[in-house]
């Protein structure tokens, strides 16, 4: 059986926390370590958005993180996919009525994949990243290049 197109290259992921509680962030690391071992699919965390195919955003966006999140989004080369991990990043969740929270991530940057859960299970995070592969393939077919 031929490998599906989605496995033609390894996905590099940049993780940015915009005010999350660390719950999802720890589950992201758990997804990469041996029990779930996302690295066997070539999914790897990178240290800089400039090397990333996928942005993994956790948490509601706080006011000081707003300009930084936009900047990280701009620094990520096209084609790119944005995954929001966690209920508070998807909708704001329990964090509403605050003077320092701007809102959910999709009010700040365009979001492709939402992974709800408080916090999401590692399986759900891996599923989100796999969905991002499809998104990136669509973008590539449409001729968006980096």
């Amino acid at each position: 059986m031929a490998l599906p197109r989605s496995f033609k290259k390894a996905l590099w992921v940049f993780h940015v926390a915009t005010g999350s509680c660390n719950g999802c962030d720890i589950e992201i690391i758990a997804a990469l370590t041996p029990r779930y071992d996302a690295e066997r699919f070539g999914i790897m965390l990178t240290g800089t958005p400039r090397h990333a195919d996928v942005l993994l955003v956790t948490g509601p966006v706080t006011k000081p993180m707003l300009p930084r999140l936009k900047r990280i989004y701009d620094q990520t080369p096209d084609p790119k996919a944005v995954i929001v991990v966690g209920g508070c990043g998807c909708t704001g969740g329990v964090f509403y009525e605050s003077y320092n929270v701007v809102g959910p991530v999709d009010e700040v940057i365009p979001v492709d994949i939402y992974v709800p859960g408080c916090p999401c299970r590692p399986e759900a995070i891996i599923d989100g990243v796999v969905k991002a592969v499809t998104k990136l393939e669509t973008l590539e077919k449409a001729g968006v290049s980096g």
Binding site: S98, Y99, N100, P110
Partner: peptide
């Protein structure tokens, strides 16, 4: 210059409670 816990002079904290901004 917000003083979120001050009821008398919150520096405009209550006006900051809007949930969303537009990108």
């Amino acid at each position: 210059t917000l003083h979120p816990w001050s009821k008398e002079d919150d520096g405009g904290t209550s006006k900051e409670l809007k949930r969303l901004v537009k990108w």
